[in-house]
Design a protein around this nucleic acid. Structure first.
Lengths: 357, 357
DNA sequence: TTGAAAGCGCTAACAG
DNA sequence: CTGTTAGCGCTTTCAA
């Protein structure tokens, strides 16, 4: 293992100068820096993050906690998070809770001492437990919010209302007047918002009816289970809680001889890659999941690096032409850092069409 | 942060005893151990892995390097690896190389100093580069082997020959006599073995013909691109390089009005969860991917912990009734530790049936 | 069996 | 601008 001592010896400086050349290059003279840098590349020196972290009280690693990495939603999000953290020089530890709140709790506590902060994605914890975690650890929440007093925990959410609206408007625009919604787990954060969003969007449409088919498993199995109910509802279009459920509906309907979109239209949520696996491809609405992951990492690292970078951002904004505008902009920046809501995009593919006359 | 000092103070012992209570409990008297353990749980003490690692020359963390986490094959494998490493007390950092050899190389070097070892899954590196990496770092290879002199690097592979045979025999048993193979990237390790396996298995069948359609992208797009060729080949059944390509074939055929399995049968490779997303579900052959991940972690950690545990395993085996048998068994165990080939299972689902008369 | 003490590789005062 | 030095939390000799 190559250490600072080796580099120092090779370049004829002290270990402190080697360290400075890496962390604060501007505090080292040009020729010295060049020599040290040369030694570093010649020896193939890589700083030991654990040692640096021990000293600085930081580990240079963050954790991403997801319910199930083997789910396109979370794997895409993970991909974005991993790229983003890597680009910022942080290691990323992935924790899969297998959808269990108790595992989530245990794993968070186990991993916490080894990291600088964590990202909780679609946490399965109840409000109280989540608030405790948020208070005890530096973290960022994705797809969950802490209503009420806690306003210090950054969150990343998707504008589910806008997503639902886009889906409903698309269907209404096609001529549909009665749609059915195949929901997900009743107590899920997203489910609550998606159902509400669909209802709100439907309320605005004239003579538009929504049948809530209730909660199903957010899987292909769940979709299959809902297939007959959806047909029986008499709706000409169906919106599914997520793409997986939509795939199940599609598969079951195919078995029943129901054609999509000729007999019934279908829209999924999340716009994961599975939407492009079926025939016809699935019309789906959702945010860019990699961007969700990237954003969460960004917020977390900004928080870790602390007031320094936040202050710099504000200062940068404030240094604009207009003093007043600058301040306003700085305030906006600060607000954005705490809660970021990402927009959703509707991808129209083959599973939606005009209702049959 | 709670440290050994806090625990020591609370339980009235030295920090050395606290450390011993954790690492080598048998070297501490019962009453002392109990007191320390109590203090630990009362204070919620969690050892700082970085500090321990710094001292011991280990980090307690391993890396899993995959080409694309957003691919059901790798996400399932990752799920197994993550569960396994956690169970063994190791942290797992996931590295996504976005399928690029250069990124893979760079990331391995960057992460290497922070870990005790790494698992390279379906590495995109060429033989020479891979051999260099294997020589320079403690690692385990999955889906790749180092032919030739290197026999010290543990590898985990899937018995592709058996998998191919199972697929061919299934089809032959159904009555098919002419099948087509939609291959993956020409230079891919798996592709080479799968094609060879299919050819070998076909050679054994009487009057059985295989048309190799050549290499396609291992994605739904690739499958779609091959759909017409497959039909034109005149084969009554098709085997696809992986499930994703099979899904593409299925989708394109559906658009063309070709029915599965009435007009043509289809078998995928890998048996990922996407095989259950389609209508009909996809017959697919592959190993348990989570087990592949678990096995790789097992091999790596065993190698990290060194001869100690290997010796123990051999001793355990050798302590059987028969001396000779024991030795033989121990040898087998040792051999297994270096290269583990996992069997593949054929899951017969709706996409295969008898050929049309 | 237990404690004292050294030191893993690195960073951050503090001097010079 | 550069070097010396004191630890970060932990494990592990070495003595007692």
């Amino acid at each position: 293992m190559v250490t600072v001592h080796d580099v120092a010896a090779r370049s004829g400086v002290s270990i402190a100068t080697v360290s400075r050349t890496i962390r604060t290059p501007h505090r080292v003279t040009e020729p010295t820096r060049v020599r040290v840098l040369e030694a570093i590349s010649e020896l193939g020196y890589r700083p030991n993050r654990a040692a640096a972290g021990l000293r600085r009280g930081r580990t240079g690693t963050i954790a991403l906690v997801v319910p199930d990495i083997d789910n396109p939603y979370f794997s895409s999000l993970t991909k974005g998070a991993q790229a983003s953290s890597r680009a910022r020089g942080y290691g990323l530890v992935v924790v899969d809770t297998t959808e269990l709140a108790e595992v989530e709790l245990e794993e968070i506590e186990a991993v916490a001492p080894q990291i600088d902060g964590l990202i909780l994605v679609s946490s399965r914890l109840d409000e109280a437990a989540l608030a405790d975690i948020a208070a005890a650890h530096r973290c960022v929440l994705v797809n969950r919010t802490l209503e009420g007093r806690d306003d210090a925990t950054p969150t990343v959410t998707v504008d589910e209302a806008a997503a639902a609206r886009a889906a409903v408007e698309h269907l209404a625009g096609l001529g549909h007047r009665h749609i059915a919604y195949v929901g997900g787990p009743a107590r899920s954060w997203s489910q609550t918002r998606r159902l509400r969003g669909i209802r709100d969007a439907a309320a605005v449409q004239a003579g538009f009816e929504v049948t809530d088919l209730g909660g199903f498993e957010p899987t292909a199995q769940g979709g299959r289970a809902a297939a007959q109910d959806a047909l029986d509802s008499g709706a000409t279009a169906v919106i599914a809680y997520n793409d997986l459920a939509a795939m199940g509906l599609l598969a079951r309907w195919a078995e029943l001889g129901v054609r999509v979109p000729d007999d019934v239209s279908l829209v999924g949520f999340d716009n994961t890659y599975v939407a492009e696996l079926s025939a016809p491809h699935l019309t789906s609405v959702g945010a860019d999941l990699r961007e969700v992951g990237e954003t969460a990492v960004e917020l977390l690292i900004e928080r870790i690096d602390g007031a320094a970078s936040r202050g710099a951002a504000a200062r940068g904004a404030a240094s604009g032409v207009e003093g007043a505008d600058g301040d306003a902009e700085a305030a906006t920046v600060a607000a954005l850092e705490l809660h970021r809501e990402l927009g959703a995009q509707l991808q129209v593919r083959g599973s939606t069409g005009r209702p049959r006359p």
